[in-house]
Every structure is written in C-alpha cells, then in structure tokens.
Simulated scan of single mutants.
Amino acid sequence: MNTSDTTITKARREFLAALDETQFSGEFLRQFLAQVESATPDLLNSYAADEMLAPIDAAQSSWNVDYYRRQKHCAGHNFSKERLEHLIAVREYFRQEGYKGFVPQAVGGGSSGVDKVSQVKRFDGTPSSYQPSSNLKKFVDEGDLLTIRTALRLELNNNRLGGQDLRNASAWTRGQVSALFEPNTEKNFARAIDPDQSHWLPEYYNNQTVYLKTNFSEERFLHLVEVREHLRQRGLEGFAPIATPIAPSPQLAPRSRSASSTADQAPSTPNQESRTARPELNPIFKIALVFGGALAAVVIYLSLVK
C-alpha cells in the first residue's frame, strides 16, 4: 500500500468516526461529503452489496442502532456515496427520534462538541500555558512528520487564532518534533521572503502558503504569521478574526479566500500545489477545521493526497 492509499484509508476511517460527532447536522455532513467527492473522487467506492456487505434498507421500521452499526461497518469496506448518505439519513432519523448518543447537547451542556470547540485554545499568552488544538496534538501524537506539518500549516486557516497563538503552536510543535522544520531555502516553488510590507497582499500570502509546502522552514512559517497579522489588522476579507460559531451550518461559512480566487492568485506549478480543489480553502472544510475532531482530520488527510 503506497502513501496515497494509506492516506485515503485514514481519511475514510476519520469520516466514519465523524458520524459520531453530534455537533454536525446531517445537512452539513452531506455538504461535506459532496466537497470530498469533488476534491478527491478516488476516496469513494462504487456501491456494492453481497453476502459480506449488507444491502441498504430504505424502510425506517428496520432502522435501529444495530442496523446502523452494521451499515457503518459495511461502509468501512465499501466506502460508497450511497452508503454514506444512507448512514447520514439513518443518523438524522435517530436525532429526530431522540436516540441517546445521536442528539447534540445544548451549548453549556457539559462535554458537547460545541463546548469542545470553545476550548480549543485556552492560554494567557505564555508558552508554558499554551494548549495545542485537538487536531495538532492528535497528529503530533501519531508521529507522522508530513501529517504534522500539514496540521500546523492548516492552523493558519483558523481565523479564531491570533498571531501569538500560531507562534506558540509553532514553538510547541517544534519542541515535540525535532525534525519539524527544514532549513530555509529558495528554489523554483519556494521563492524568497519579501520584507517589504507594501507587497504583503492576499496574493503574496497565498503564494507563500504554496512555498511553505515546498520548503517547510520555520522562517517561512513565522513570516506567514506576520503577513497574516498584517492583513488581519487591515481587516481584509478572509483574514479578519471570526467569533466562535454556535453550530456548523452553511450560513456560518467564513467568507474567506475562495478556492476560485486563490486559484487565480497562486502561481501555477506542475505538481498542482495551487489547485482549486485544495480542501483547506473550501468554506465547508474551513468550518470543519474550526470545530476540530474527525472531520478536521479528513481535511488534513485529503490535503496530503496528490
């Protein structure tokens, strides 16, 4: 199994795990699945049913927790759009019927998914009190360098985080992973850092995010944080701080740098680093990143599939 196959397997597993995250509505999951299909068609299988894979049963009278678990198990072996949409439909039925473990808790109700989101960052600005986001810690704990770098890079897309948050994230991750950063170099797809702030425009920022993928140096990451802060202070669309969302829905999608505008601005490269389907630039994916959990893990894994 090659790296791409391993990444796809992990993304599938995380998406199935996300079905247990009650803060996401069925409609949001369907939109997320549609974006996944668009960004990475190879992630999905064709629907199949046989003696090992139970067929889908459209009759709600057959829908119970054991049926849901069987279908979820089958989806692990037949990761088809039909099975996933069916699982979402069964999940929605359980939510409407008030099944325990499927109904989201209200804000302030203890350990709800929304509660977890509000606790992603809690620190007073000193490195000793910094707590990494759940996703960053998850991938650092797993120990895969490429995934860790991607997770740290995607922290830049969370407009709830300020510059000091990101600097602390960089310092914390570097302390956990000695080989995190590469020496700063300039090459075809990693052009020089420009210290002239008059050139620090969204186009420059987007180009530098592409260069960071090619040359993951500490200097480039911290420079991106500085440019990002400059753009935030100017209040530019897509960079201004956002409030913590109450619940994920299409209306809450941050009006950020769109995939189409980014594609126009980012340099063309043979390895398609700036392709429009980059999951971290999609508004639905950005909500998943803010909320963390398994859906954010899917976004991170998809960003590794070339």
Results as ranks from 00 to 15, higher is better:
Thr6Ser: 10
Lys10Pro: 00
Ala11Arg: 05
Arg12Ser: 03
Phe15Ile: 00
Ala18Phe: 08
Glu21Lys: 15
Glu21Val: 00
Thr22Ser: 14
Gln31Phe: 08
Gln31His: 15
Val36Cys: 15
Glu37Lys: 10
Ser38Asp: 11
Ala39Lys: 09
Asp42Trp: 04
Ala49Val: 03
Met52His: 09
Met52Thr: 03
Leu53Tyr: 01
Leu53Arg: 07
Ala54Gln: 02
Pro55Val: 10
Ile56Pro: 07
Ala59Asn: 12
Gln60Tyr: 07
Asp66Asn: 13
Tyr67Val: 03
Arg70Gln: 12
His73Tyr: 10
Phe79Asn: 00
Lys81Val: 06
Arg83Ala: 04
His86Pro: 03
Ile88Trp: 09
Glu92Thr: 08
Phe94His: 06
Glu97Cys: 11
Tyr99Gln: 09
Tyr99Ile: 06
Phe102Arg: 07
Gln105Tyr: 05
Gly108His: 12
Ser112Phe: 00
Gly113Leu: 02
Asp115Gln: 14
Lys116Leu: 03
Ser118Ala: 10
Ser118Gln: 08
Gln119Phe: 05
Val120His: 07
Val120Trp: 05
Val120Phe: 05
Lys121Phe: 04
Thr126Tyr: 07
Thr126Val: 07
Thr126Pro: 00
Pro127Met: 09
Ser128Gln: 15
Ser129Pro: 05
Tyr130Val: 00
Gln131Lys: 15
Pro132Val: 00
Pro132Ser: 10
Val140Lys: 03
Val140Ile: 15
Gly143Phe: 11
Gly143Glu: 14
Asp144Arg: 08
Asp144Cys: 07
Leu145Ser: 03
Thr147Val: 11
Thr147Leu: 15
Glu155Trp: 01
Leu156Thr: 04
Asn158Phe: 01
Gly163Val: 02
Asp165Leu: 08
Arg167His: 08
Ala169Leu: 02
Ala171Leu: 08
Gly175Asp: 12
Gln176Thr: 02
Gln176His: 08
Ser178Leu: 06
Pro183Leu: 11
Lys187Ser: 14
His199Ser: 12
Trp200Tyr: 06
Tyr204Ala: 08
Asn207Leu: 13
Gln208Val: 01
Thr214Cys: 09
Asn215Glu: 01
Phe216Arg: 04
Ser217Met: 04
Ser217Pro: 03
Ser217Tyr: 01
Ser217Ala: 12
Glu218Ala: 14
Arg220Thr: 00
Phe221Val: 04
His223Asn: 10
Val227Trp: 08
Leu231Phe: 05
Gly235Glu: 13
Ala240Leu: 09
Ala240Lys: 15
Pro241Met: 13
Ser249Glu: 15
Pro250His: 11
Pro250Val: 01
Ala253Leu: 11
Ser256Ala: 15
Arg257His: 06
Ser268Asp: 15
Glu273Gly: 04
Arg278Asp: 04
Glu280Gln: 13
Lys286Ser: 09
Lys286Ile: 07
Ala288Thr: 07
Phe291His: 10
Phe291Val: 06
Gly293Cys: 07
Ala296Trp: 05
Ala296Ser: 15
Ile300Lys: 01
Ser303Gln: 07
